[in-house]
């Protein structure tokens, strides 16, 4: 009798984390561009890369509650690392990806010691400062980075020695999507682990955590490093699939965009960054004809509307609709 009573909470926690049909449908739908919009595979690959970047921000913002305005630092660092390796003669994509991930991870680990000490406004200022610092450093070191002209001469080898990175983006999208999926599986695993529960604890109540014996700073350093690795992977993907790296990868605009994307989609839901990236990038592509100033006008409007009407993002709104529908039925 007691064992049945105890199995129940375990089963409840298992149902919390099982794969839902809508998730499987989502991942199947990511294959649609190959058949439906084969002319847009380059865009699709950029979306996948941005989605991965947003996913990495979700780990720290959506789960641990760490607001960052400088997340592009790790994206750009991974981008330049991957670009430079290829430029210096090693164009193999997968090893380049791993090296860029490691480089971004080291940077993330080092900065995490600062990050873990602060919260709230101070944290926003520090992440902003670190991001600007790195962007300016890259700008000054133009002998290394190519400065404002961007990094030229990046030549990628064929993926697995077989698949050329072509103009149509078939290889690029396949590659970016596969890497995104693998990283997503890792993130999903992490979120559903005891460590993921501890992160949610930090987000929910950072004061209570030490009072139950939780080493909050160590947790933050860890997740921050993992998120930096993922951001670095996203940056490396961009460098490899476009065969160039620009200062924009480190810019404040990129940090701000990814924050907008995550909030638009819904932070703390794992799919929020993915959905946000699709909406944001498709919309920007559709409006690319119009003046870029108007683009930010509409993004501004959209952001205000989302925060007012969908405080938990598009996915939060969708979840509420589903709940309403269920309770009516």
């Amino acid at each position: 009798m007691t064992s049945a009573a105890v199995a129940e909470p375990q089963r409840y926690l298992e149902t919390q984390i099982r794969w839902r049909p809508v998730e499987i449908a989502f991942w199947l739908a990511t294959l649609l561009p190959f058949v439906l919009t084969p002319n847009y595979l380059v865009l699709a690959s950029q979306i996948a890369i941005t989605a991965l970047f947003a996913l990495s921000l979700d780990l720290i913002l959506g789960y641990a509650g760490i607001v960052s305005l400088g997340h592009a630092a790790y994206f750009g660092f991974g981008s330049y690392t991957a670009g430079l390796i290829a430029k210096w003669g090693w164009g193999e994509p997968l090893t380049g990806l791993v090296i860029a991930a490691a480089a971004a991870g080291v940077l993330g680990y080092l900065t995490s010691f600062i990050i873990a000490r602060f919260r709230h406004l101070a944290l926003i200022m520090i992440t902003l400062g670190l991001g600007l610092l790195l962007a300016e450093a890259a700008n000054s070191a133009s002998w290394l980075t190519g400065g404002a002209d961007g990094l030229q001469g990046v030549r990628m080898w064929k993926l697995f020695g077989v698949f050329q990175f072509d103009l149509y983006g078939t290889t690029a999208y396949t590659y970016a999507l596969a890497v995104l999926f693998v990283c997503f599986l890792v993130a999903r695993r992490l979120i559903n682990s005891p460590f993921g529960l501890a992160l949610r604890g930090i987000r929910e109540n950072a004061i209570r955590m030490p009072a139950i014996g939780a080493p909050t700073r160590a947790h933050i350093r860890k997740v921050y490093t993992i998120a930096a690795v993922m951001a670095g992977v996203a940056g490396a993907l961009l460098a490899q699939t476009t065969e160039t790296v620009s200062l924009e990868t480190l810019s404040f605009a990129r940090s701000a965009d990814v924050l907008v994307i995550l909030i638009l989609g819904g932070a703390g839901r794992l799919y929020g960054g993915l959905v946000g990236a699709i909406i944001y990038m498709v919309a920007r592509d559709q409006f690319s004809g119009i003046n870029p100033q108007y683009w930010y006008f509409w993004i501004g409007t959209l952001l205000v509307a989302v925060v007012i009407f969908l405080p938990n993002g598009v996915l939060g709104g969708a979840a509420r609709l589903v709940r309403l529908g269920r309770s009516r039925a």
Partner: peptide
């Protein structure tokens, strides 16, 4: 609480 690979 530090283990991030095994499910809860």
């Amino acid at each position: 609480a530090g283990s991030w690979w095994e499910k809860l």
